[in-house]
């Protein structure tokens, strides 16, 4: 229950080349986390998600709740778990409000 699911009407794509470049820059200790690595196409408009947002979006496949998202992301980002949890909650709340993500309320 409370698994996060992407709105199936939203067309999206991971921009792998851009994502790879951002990851390489971050590995080298450079900034770069704010560049779009996932694009969403909604009603003829394009929206971009940065590396963290894109990873959250990709993980919201109806199989994970917020705690599980944070656990997965913790493997990729070397940050304080409390801060990461807060960032994820804020991002998810925003996208739920927009109707781009929803909670699957069914029980396991």
């Amino acid at each position: 229950m409370n698994k996060l699911q992407r709105n199936p009407d939203i067309v999206w794509r991971v921009e792998k080349r851009r994502q790879q470049a951002v990851l390489e820059r971050m590995a080298a200790g450079e900034e770069g986390g704010d560049e779009g690595t996932v694009i969403l196409l909604i009603s003829g408009m394009m929206h971009q998600l940065n590396l963290l947002g894109g990873m959250i979006w990709t993980l919201c496949d109806g199989q994970r709740d917020i705690e599980q998202l944070v656990t997965e992301l913790q493997k990729e980002f070397d940050v304080d778990p409390t801060i990461l949890q807060a960032d994820v909650q804020e991002f998810v709340a925003d996208l739920v409000e927009r109707g781009w993500l929803s909670y699957d309320q069914s029980t396991d």
Partner: peptide, 9 residues
């Protein structure tokens, strides 16, 4: 353009 890995359409 550099960002897009392929056309959208």
């Amino acid at each position: 353009t550099e960002q897009f890995s392929a056309p959208l359409t």
